[in-house]
Design a binder for these strands. Structure first.
Lengths: 205, 205
DNA sequence: AAATGATTCCATCATTTGTTTGAAACATCA
DNA sequence: TGATGTTTCAAACAAATGATGGAATCATTT
């Protein structure tokens, strides 16, 4: 399925991979409709037809981007789950929030694209909305909100959604919020993390 | 400034107002770039040139929409502030969350448009990013997070942002999250409110 | 070196999209 | 009624955008 994507990621210097990387960033900033194939081609400094040669139509490239960031998140979540295994709850929460925030602040397109997907209607209905439910359940289980990894209660899922979105909000909102607060990036990230902990640590105690 | 908008809102049956209402909804669903003037015209069942006759260019209509929803939020917040005045903190939080959630679930375009604005770059830089800081500060003050209405500490603003965005997330995310949870709208709204209270009540105690 | 296949670009097309023009329909009021 | 101003629509335009064909370039193999 993702063999085209996988091949592209194997060598990050390949044209296909470079296009994907640029597309990730630009789709993340402007959204699907706000992005033109020409914008992406320009960023990679190639002709637009080269882009089409490698990825086909715009929608296919977008789909590849979504799969790419989804896979990145999945990997990171597995990594974090290993880090926190066995520790006491409060520590688990603190570490997980820290790690996820760092990861997303370094890759803000992930948050952007994720929120885009949650909140925007695609003009031609997107046929690509699987997988989210999966890792929401995984996180819920990993946080001890559910006995059963597969059958996670509705309320637990809502909590996980709330936490994940809160992180995404601070990451994606940086460009809007930070100028309005007039703080440095470091200060902003520090405060975002603290705010996240403020709400989450007290809630799970 | 908004006299054109005000005039339109005076008579909700006026063509100008009908266009505005449709624009609110469609811009909310598809975002600025995802919306075409033709989509809006079609929704109102008028010719596209009639739309231009009343509102001028797309960007101006969008701006009017943003001002409209912003004003709606401001009004609602004033209303809520009056309702909760003098009550104990926990009650204030519960009522405020309930009220704001109800209001936004009834007017989801507000949440959509708000989040869009926070997270999306406009291709031609939007010159319209005032006012948000204002009412963030107002809420912080009203919640007792700041002594001074005008000079609200950074961390308090971050908390308010976090709360407001959490509500917006559930409202705007309904179309994505609810099918994935397989619950009714009522059930979803109930759970959203409970989740909001779960995080916020414990945090402020 | 020649042949083959892969990659890139230039030029171009068809559609969509933002916007305008000008004439018709409608309303208002002298 | 007729004249004047307002609102509406059909038609058109220019620019932007998604997409493609074909020639040129580059790389690889024989």
């Amino acid at each position: 399925m993702a063999s085209s994507l996988e091949k592209a990621k194997q060598n990050p210097d390949s044209m296909k991979a470079k296009i994907l990387t640029a597309a990730r960033k630009i789709f993340g900033e402007y959204g699907f409709h706000g992005t033109t194939t020409r914008m992406i081609a320009k960023a990679v400094k190639i002709d637009i037809s080269t882009l089409y040669y490698h990825w086909g139509e715009k929608g296919d490239l977008y789909e590849a981007v979504i799969m790419d960031v989804t896979e990145g998140m999945r990997q990171k979540l597995i990594e974090v789950e290993k880090m926190i295994k066995g520790r006491p709850l409060e520590e688990r929460i603190r570490i997980a929030l820290d790690e996820m925030a760092d990861y997303l602040f370094e890759n803000p397109e992930i948050s952007n694209l994720t929120l885009f997907r949650y909140f925007t209607k695609m003009r031609h209905g997107s046929v690509l909305d699987f997988k989210v439910p999966e890792y929401i359940s995984d996180i819920a289980f990993s946080m001890g909100l559910s006995e059963d990894r597969k059958n996670v209660p509705f309320d637990a899922k809502m909590k996980v959604l709330s936490i994940m979105n809160a992180i995404h909000n601070f990451v994606s909102g940086e460009n809007f919020f930070r100028p309005m607060m007039q703080v440095s990036r470091e200060e902003y990230i520090r405060a975002a993390k603290e705010t996240l902990k403020f709400f989450n640590v007290s809630a799970f105690s």
